[in-house]
């Protein structure tokens, strides 16, 4: 027990929590925007892969790190355009299209990787984002270490704040939320349901891709085929866990990251060594299922989630 407490009060643990939470926050915000507008985006897993790949490849080809982030975002938005074209004006099954987008994005990344690097056995490394030195903050004893984070992590939290502000404090956010609740009312106001929903999915997909790019540009400095490894599906659970609200979703991501950081450290304790390591690796997925069950009774789902809208149809 004291081992756990030692872990929980160490600054390096909290630094890891914030680091692990960052890509989850970015991708969860992306999914949240889509779902608030009424579109479930199951392309998230593949869009994170394409973001991780394109961001890394752009930097490997000589672009600056922020250029890589921009390329990843653009690639994600392209897949968002594909997803939303099929699901919004055509109203196709969001389940089938989402899975199709995930399969297409994942295989595109693998195909392009092999095409561009046919001979390599281990993927080349890039120089990733380094922790920012924030004057005043970085010198603080415990906090300085815990908040020794890269610019992309700071950006992730800023994005979450921005998403919350736009959704709740601007006319655009009101329209996006309304289109996920009662699209006919939005149409009656003279706004375009199709435009709002497609825009939300495209922007959301861009954020998911930046979440993926975090893995290659800030966390691991290389691209591996299996690196996203279900994080996208976990983000979908986090949106539910956060009751479709940005603030709660961020807290969910941090809680989740805390469990993840804790399990890595527990594996190294005598107790952890006695248990199979696969149990620890399965913990995030088991937690996600539990989170879904826990939140299931609360009906805060956007009313028009997964309901296509066809003008003139009642």
């Amino acid at each position: 027990m004291s081992a756990v407490i030692d872990i929980l009060i160490s600054a390096s643990f909290w630094a890891a929590v914030i680091r692990i939470a960052s890509p989850l926050i970015l991708a969860t915000m992306g999914e949240l925007i889509c779902e608030r507008a009424g579109v479930l985006n199951l392309g998230i897993e593949g869009i994170m892969v394409i973001g991780a790949f394109t961001g890394w490849m752009a930097v490997y080809q000589g672009l600056p790190l922020w250029g890589g982030v921009a390329v990843a975002m653009a690639a994600g938005m392209m897949f968002g355009l594909l997803h939303s074209t099929l699901t919004v004006p055509f109203g196709l099954s969001q389940h089938v299209v989402g899975l199709g987008v995930t399969l297409l994005a994942t295989s595109s990344a693998s195909f392009a990787y092999r095409l561009m690097l046919p001979e390599v056995t281990s993927p080349p490394k890039i120089a990733p984002f380094q922790p920012l030195n924030v004057p005043g903050l970085s010198d603080l004893p415990w906090l300085g270490d815990a908040l020794s984070q890269t610019a992309l992590t700071w950006a992730a939290f800023a994005v979450a704040g921005l998403v919350a502000w736009v959704l709740y404090r601007t006319p655009l956010g009101l329209a996006v939320r309304a289109v996920g609740e009662k699209p006919a009312a939005v149409e009656a106001q003279g706004l375009s349901v199709t435009g709002l929903r497609m825009g939300a999915v495209i922007v959301g997909s861009g954020l998911m891709a930046v979440g993926g790019a975090f893995l290659t540009l800030s966390a691991f400095s290389s691209f591996f085929f299996e690196m996203v490894n279900g994080r996208g599906w976990i983000c979908i659970a986090l949106v539910v866990f956060g009751a479709w609200k940005p603030g709660k979703a961020v807290l969910g991501a941090i809680l989740f990251a805390a469990f993840d950081a804790l399990q890595i450290r527990l594996q190294q304790t005598p107790l952890g060594a006695a248990l199979p390591y696969q149990l620890f690796l399965a913990l995030p997925f088991i937690l996600s299922v539990l989170a879904l069950i826990l939140m299931s009774r609360r009906a805060e789902v956007p009313a028009a989630l997964m309901v296509p809208y066809n003008k003139g149809e009642r």
């Binding site: 594909l82 099929l86 055509f90 196709l92 099954s93 089938v96 299209v97 199709g100 987008v101 399969l103 297409l104 994942t106 295989s107 595109s108 693998s110 195909f111 092999r114």
Partner: peptide, 16 residues
């Protein structure tokens, strides 16, 4: 991986 890409493409084209 061209096979996986083609299958995903076929799926999306087909539902449309």
């Amino acid at each position: 991986y061209i096979a996986d890409m083609l299958m995903a493409t076929a799926l999306l084209f087909m539902v449309l």
